[in-house]
Simulated scan of single mutants.
Amino acid sequence: MAEYGNEKVLVVSEQEIAHLNEVMKSLNSNVSAAMSYVRRVQKLTFSQLDKRFSGIQGSTLKRYMHQSYSSMRPIHVVAAYSWITMVPMTAFFHGFKQNKLYRGMGDSVVEALVRVGRVPTEVIELFLSMIFCMLNEESKQSFLTFRQQIEAEYGCMIDHSHLLPPDVLDINAFAIDYYHSIALTVKKFRHENNLSIDTISRVLGLSEYQYNILENPNRTIHFPVSIGFRVMQGFHLDAHVNFISEMKQFPEFHKLRQVQHVRDSLMIEALRLLGENERKSMIKVLMSLSELYR
């Protein structure tokens, strides 16, 4: 179970499913706001985005970023967008203002983390070393313990320059690879945790018929981004990165998601251990670094 982002899957109660259904009412709005926020912070035009994809029009992406757009946002499109922008996909599930990882740290840290996806790993290591030197002995030990734990689960913070998205991403090929991986890994997840199809389908907000399609590696049908949020919240997972571990045509995307999770987790934890004034200063440093690698 640890490979899916937690050590234990809890039994999902009727109350938890009801709460999940209630939370879902604002998910489309949060995802739209987050996608739009990333575009603005990274100063991307829709014309530029249109050139980064094949198989989807810029006008469609634009609709997905309108909070009033009532149709679903396919999970593979949000995943592809996260790769192009180099922002961890889990951030889009909550909307940046509500993400629990950033709570109490202010909007500036959110903007900084949105910007630093392309900053080389060795530069991030230097940034973390600067913060580490500012910590007291207790905080240093706390950070080292945290780093040991997260790297034991997801791997080390390796160089990710070879994991960047292609200049033009074929959204249709990406979708086939993405859903094929989900089909294989979600079935494995269900069996490993003795989950009935009734339970897992209800947690994901799908009918049993829809869920059986999701588990079929030979079918490629678009599913809403909500299934990613629901699997994390419903089963108390810290990440869902390993559900894409079986991607064959775009294996770099899975590896990047692992590296991103480690990078962001370490930066957030390091900044959290600083005092408020020190944190503000280091966030400014991070913002300056991001400008060098746009």
Rank of each mutant, 00 (worst) to 15 (best):
M1C: 10
M1G: 13
M1F: 02
G5S: 09
G5H: 08
V11L: 11
V11F: 04
S13Q: 14
E16Y: 04
A18L: 08
H19L: 12
L20T: 12
V23F: 13
M24K: 12
L27T: 15
N28T: 07
N30M: 09
V31C: 02
M35A: 05
R40K: 15
L49R: 04
K51Y: 01
S54G: 04
Q57H: 10
Q67Y: 01
S70T: 13
R73P: 00
R73W: 06
A79E: 11
Y81R: 10
P88N: 07
M89S: 08
A91F: 15
H94N: 15
Q98P: 00
R103S: 08
D107H: 14
V109F: 04
R118F: 01
P120N: 00
P120M: 01
T121P: 00
V123P: 02
I124W: 00
F127N: 07
L128I: 11
S129Y: 05
M130N: 14
M134R: 09
L135M: 10
E137F: 04
S139W: 00
S142H: 10
F143T: 06
T145Y: 00
F146K: 09
E151M: 02
C156I: 03
H162E: 15
L163S: 01
P166D: 12
P166F: 03
D167N: 00
D167G: 00
V168D: 07
V168Y: 01
D170Q: 11
D170I: 07
I176Y: 08
D177F: 02
Y178L: 03
Y178R: 04
Y179D: 09
A183K: 00
T185M: 08
V186K: 07
K187L: 05
H191W: 07
S196H: 04
S196A: 01
I200W: 06
S201E: 12
V203F: 03
L204N: 10
Y209A: 09
P217V: 02
N218P: 04
N218C: 02
R219K: 13
T220K: 07
I221L: 11
H222E: 15
S226Y: 03
M232N: 05
D238H: 11
V241T: 15
S245M: 03
M247T: 11
Q249G: 00
F250S: 08
F250H: 14
L256C: 02
R257T: 13
Q258D: 01
Q258Y: 00
V259L: 00
L266P: 06
I268R: 05
A270R: 07
R272D: 11
L273S: 09
L274C: 10
G275S: 14
E276L: 08
E276K: 13
E276R: 11
E278V: 05
K280W: 07
K280V: 03
I283Y: 06
V285E: 14
L289W: 02
L289V: 03
E291K: 05
L292N: 12
Y293K: 01
